[in-house]
Design a protein around this nucleic acid. Structure first.
Lengths: 239, 239
DNA sequence: ACTCCGAATTCAGTATACTGAATATGCTTC
DNA sequence: GAAGCATATTCAGTATACTGAATTCGGAGT
């Protein structure tokens, strides 16, 4: 687990070690390479990278301050998000992303639009094949592309931060066929608005998508909750 | 300058040194104790606090990652915000704060409302007396109070972060009498909406306030720009 | 087997030391 | 006194070492 062996981490590579390690870990988090049970230990990562603890530690603490990790007494780990946490994150995203999508309809380059088109096609293939991982990846490319096109880098960074915080949830909900349809339909609609350079349509479509995505999560989570309550009930009977 | 001598920084005080130093510096930044010309040097701060460089350095790098400082080759300093940066920050704030204010109208306790009332009174006195510093402080208390009442801590944290990033600008614009009136009028209106528990009014009033505040900045900044351009023009004639 | 307790282990936090790049300073030269 | 150059200084970044608290583990007692 957490096998962090990137040969590309070198001292003199322009960026600081800390920045390289940060990007490396961010990438792993995004890609789901760090599971909920994993423990990230600075000294282990440092050894596997051939550097000292300090730059690793600084990258980890930055990830903590951004909400991507939590510091436990036994290494760094993914934060456990309660339903209220998810709701809070979605509230911020609902406020930011529709307007950001409207901006993107203006800011996206033709090359970006082509990339988005390819991502939509990839997502369609993934849904047809029932390939969850491919859909997740296509969705990630789609998001990364339109967000990267934003001229307001602070807005872009904030959106990325909060979106990445719930990426575990996203991957989880994608196991549900209904959610997959919502995601694909959302990508299609948002792409169409982008291609048409229709800022208002992009905003409206993104608003709807955010709503649907949260509903989808809430529905699945309620189901899990009932299960969890049932199990807890049994366990409680033991104690 | 940057005399960072807080006797309260002690190792065993529950929180980590890093967290204490971070809060200490955050407070100083908010209060304007760190000027645009100052250089924060980890080893100096560490010596004055009687701790090692590491916790200081971690606090500083966290402030950098949050946009409150920039790391230069000669110490850490306040970032120089171009007009586009200010515009970007205001765009995010415009998206978040009106809705947050609406939430606050619901979440604020009676004690909070009393505190807000006192802050408004203090602001009125400050404007009457032309006391810029007092007005800035009353405004800061007002903001801190309603933001702290938010149940969505991520929303609150994000708002605080971006608002603090332009605090230098705020203090600057408060030197203008027109801006002072706008701020006071905004505080009065928003307070009234809060007290009435009128979420919609709070949202609308905050929307207007954000707009007015940005316009106020833009107006003053345009004036400075013209001056700056004029000066640059002369200098350019020399070279 | 089961609990209780203490030693060993783990790992974040902190301290100290080293390095190199960027800047500043002073000297030389004309 | 101005320009060019070498040296000194400063400071972030990184490396290594120490510390203490939390957890795990093994053995004694029942």
């Amino acid at each position: 687990m957490a096998e962090t062996r990137s040969i590309s981490i070198v001292p003199g590579r322009g960026e600081s070690l800390r920045a390289q390690i940060y990007e490396d870990l961010r990438e792993k988090l995004r890609g789901g390479a760090i599971g909920p049970g994993d423990r990230l230990v600075d000294v282990s990562i440092a050894r596997s990278l051939g550097v000292s603890r300090m730059p690793v530690r600084e990258a980890l603490t930055q990830l903590v301050s951004e909400g991507h990790l939590v510091s436990t007494t036994r290494g760094f780990a993914l934060p456990e998000l309660a339903p209220e946490d998810i709701a809070d994150i979605f509230e911020v995203r609902r406020l930011l992303e529709p307007r950001a999508a409207a901006n993107a309809a203006r800011d996206l380059s033709e090359a970006d639009l082509d990339r988005l088109e390819a991502a939509v096609a990839s997502a369609e293939a993934a849904v047809a094949a029932g390939d969850v991982r491919l859909l997740a990846e296509a969705n990630a490319v789609f998001r990364a592309t339109w967000i990267a096109s934003l001229r307001n880098t602070r807005l872009a960074g904030t959106i990325e931060r909060f979106a990445d915080q719930v990426h575990v949830v996203r991957r989880e909900t994608l196991r549900d066929a209904g959610t997959r349809d919502i995601v694909l339909e959302g990508m299609r609609g948002i792409y169409a608005a982008f291609r048409a350079r229709d800022a208002l349509a992009a905003q409206d479509r993104m608003t709807r998508f955010m709503h649907d995505a949260e509903q989808s999560y809430a529905r699945l989570n309620r189901g899990e909750d009932c299960q969890a309550i049932g199990e807890t009930g049994l366990e409680a009977a033991d104690g």
